[in-house]
Amino acid sequence: MAHTRMAGSQPRSSHALQGILLRSIAVVFFALMSAAMKWASEGGASLVELVFFRSAVGLPVTLAWLALGPGIGAVRTKRPGAHLLRSMIGMVSLTMLYQGLMLLPIADAVTIGFSAPAFATLLSVLVLHEKVGPHRWAAVAIGFLGVFIVARPSGSALPLAGIVYTLLGAAASAAATVTIREMSRVETHGSIVFWFFLSTTLVSGVGMLFHSAPHPPFTWALLLFGGVTGAAAQLLLTRALQVAPVSVVAPFDYTQIIWAALLGWLIWSTLPGLNTAIGAALIIASGLATAWREHRLHKDMVAATPPIE
């Protein structure tokens, strides 16, 4: 039976293009946020200040988004303990990733950070007891091989501490993803984002009492710019997922490596080396293969589900 398009509705391809556009702009903002925070750290901003501005600016933006969309009541929760755990993991991830960003060239830090999907696969087996087939295990192996090549442990020009911090941040980011997947069964996206930003703002706000210091106006401007672009990226990311499937928009996340490399060249006159380029290609291939495999499994599961009549 032919389906009649509802008046005023857009074709599916239009929604997909809109989602891709939103996701692509979000990725640019994420790259700008990373560059601003790294630049601010070179101007004397502490790690605590980076985390605080990322969270404190994101909190009112999240509240505004809730007020205009699902409503402030969306923050109500029946699982405060789960939110506390997710927020703690998220704070560890944000802190570790920013510490790595302060120590590594921006392109290398962003590239290594994209190892999170490989860690997420490992954690989904250990925590959620998901079954992972040979295709996804192969993708995990390829992803970690890419990280190994970027890190180039023999004769590496990259600080070992920066590599370790970024890998810890990627692992914590994967743990947060797994936690969110489990929480999403009963919690709204708005409540998860709100309680994370609130928790991080409060904790880093206490830290600001001890680690905040006077800075030149340019450093303060960079911190504020980093917070604004990070909040804008989060909103665009959320909207992209509302209008298009994750399997359509997720591959465009990896363009952040290109933008990071461009910003690294424009601001710091550094370009990623051959190792970074090869490792990035492997990490991207690993992430895309994992996303495609999960998309196919989801489609098969939907196809196997009998329709409700």
Rank of each mutant, 00 (worst) to 15 (best):
G19Y: 01
V164D: 02
A304R: 13
T177L: 11
A240L: 03
S93L: 00
R136I: 08
A250F: 07
L66Y: 01
L85Y: 09
I142W: 11
T4S: 06
G273Q: 07
S55W: 06
S269L: 10
I106W: 12
G143C: 12
T77N: 08
G73W: 06
V302R: 14
F252M: 14
A40W: 05
L224C: 08
L50T: 13
H3K: 12
Q234H: 15
I149K: 07
G100W: 08
K38W: 02
L224H: 01
I163C: 06
L237Y: 14
M6C: 07
Q234F: 12
L282E: 05
T188F: 00
T77V: 06
L158F: 09
L297D: 02
A31N: 07
A277E: 11
L59S: 05
G44V: 05
I89F: 03
I20A: 15
G207Q: 05
S55H: 08
A161W: 06
M33G: 02
S191H: 07
G133S: 02
W292A: 14
T200F: 00
F52R: 08
I89C: 03
T62I: 05
V110P: 08
A304E: 10
H83W: 06
V150T: 13
L85K: 06
L266S: 07
V28P: 09
W137N: 13
I257G: 04
S14Y: 00
A303Q: 15
H295W: 08
L282P: 05
V150Y: 13
T95S: 14
G43D: 06
L202I: 13
A109G: 13
P214E: 03
E130F: 03
E130A: 05
S247Y: 05
L235S: 07
A231C: 06
P60V: 01
R152W: 00
S184C: 02
T4R: 09
R239T: 09
L235K: 04
R79T: 11
A289K: 06
A231I: 09
T95K: 07
V140P: 12
T95D: 12
T270F: 02
A213W: 02
A151L: 13
